[in-house]
C-alpha cells in the first residue's frame, strides 16, 4: 500500500509482520498502515490475533519469554522498525501509550498515578507535575470528579473513573500513538459512552489504535477498520466502506452475522 495515495500521513506501518508464541504462529504476514490522527479499529472473533497485533506496537510481548517477532512495524517520523533488536522497548513505550482491557491503576494516589510516567522520565519539578496532571485529568474528562481528592487512593474510584484515570496516565506523557485494548469491555454502558466520546476528542492530537469486539463501537468511533481472522488480516479500509460494503466474503459474514 502506498501511503502517498492516501490523504493522511502514515504514523506507523506493519510490514509482513509475523508473530509467534513459542511455536504457535499468532499473526501471519500482516501489512497494515496506521494513519496519523485517525482512529483505527481492529475487529474479529476471539483469538483472531487482534490483541496480539496491538501489543506488538509497544513491544509488550518482550515481557514474556519464548515470544518472537518477524517482519517490521515502521514508525514515523523516525522511519524506524520498532521490532528491530537494536530498538529499546523502553524507548518505544515512552512514545506509545497503552490503555488496557481492565482498568489497572497503580496502588498509589490519583495524583501519583497520573504523574507516574513523568516521574519515570525523570521529571521532578513540582509545578510541571501539577500542571501536567491537571491538564491530563481534564483531557480525560476526570478533573471535575477528582480535583478535590487527588491524594485519594486510585482504587477508590469507580470502574469507569479508573479507566479514565488510566487514559489520563497515558496522556500525561504526550504519546504519539495510543493503543486501546478493549478499553470498555469491563465497563457499563454509561462509562463506555464517556470513554468513546473521549477518544473522539483525543484524535485531534494523537493517533489511536483500538481493539474491540463490539462492532457497533468500531463503527461509531473509528475512521479505519481492520478485520482479522485466525491471525490473518482479512480486510482493511475506511470504516464506512467496511461496514457498508465489505469486499471480502468473510468480513461480510462476520459483520452481518453479528449485526443481523
Amino acid at each position: 500500500m502506498n501511503p502517498n495515495q492516501h490523504p493522511y500521513p502514515v504514523k506507523a506501518e506493519a510490514r509482513k509482520l509475523n508473530f509467534f508464541y513459542g511455536l504457535v504462529q499468532a499473526l501471519k504476514a500482516i501489512d497494515m498502515p496506521l494513519y496519523e490522527r485517525q482512529v483505527t479499529a481492529l475487529i474479529g472473533p476471539s483469538g483472531c490475533g487482534k490483541s496480539t497485533f496491538l501489543r506488538c506496537f509497544n513491544r509488550m510481548h518482550d515481557l514474556y519469554p519464548g515470544n518472537r517477532y518477524e517482519g517490521e512495524i515502521v514508525f514515523h517520523p523516525d522511519n524506524t522498525n520498532l521490532l528491530s533488536t537494536e530498538v529499546d522497548p523502553i524507548e518505544v513505550r515512552m512514545r506509545i501509550g497503552m490503555v488496557f482491557q481492565k482498568p489497572n491503576p497503580f496502588p498509589k494516589s490519583i495524583f501519583e498515578n497520573v504523574a507516574y510516567g513523568l516521574r519515570v522520565r525523570g521529571e521532578r519539578n513540582r509545578r510541571v507535575l501539577d500542571d501536567k496532571v491537571e491538564q491530563s485529568l481534564k483531557d480525560a474528562a476526570l478533573w471535575n470528579e477528582v480535583k478535590d481528592r487527588l491524594k485519594d487512593m486510585a482504587f477508590n474510584l469507580s470502574g469507569g473513573q479508573q479507566q479514565r484515570l488510566c487514559i489520563a496516565r497515558a496522556l500525561a506523557t504526550d504519546p504519539e500513538l495510543l493503543l486501546f485494548d478493549e478499553p470498555t469491555s469491563a465497563l457499563d454502558p454509561i462509562a463506555t459512552a464517556s470513554i468513546e466520546e473521549l477518544m473522539h476528542d483525543l484524535k485531534k492530537r494523537v493517533t489511536i489504535l483500538i481493539v474491540t469486539h463490539n462492532m457497533q463501537q468500531a463503527a461509531r468511533i473509528s475512521d479505519h477498520t481492520a478485520y482479522m481472522y485466525l491471525g490473518d488480516l482479512i480486510e482493511f479500509g475506511k470504516t464506512d466502506e467496511i461496514f457498508i460494503k465489505p469486499r471480502d466474503k468473510r468480513t461480510e459474514d462476520y459483520i452481518t452475522g453479528r449485526l443481523s
Binding site: 523502553i90 513505550r93 501509550g97 497503580f106 507516574y116 510516567g117 522520565r121
Partner: peptide, 10 residues
C-alpha cells in the same frame, strides 16, 4: 496487568 501497565509507561 499492573506490571503491564507500568511497563507500557516505559
Amino acid at each position: 496487568s499492573l506490571r503491564e501497565g507500568a511497563y507500557a509507561m516505559g
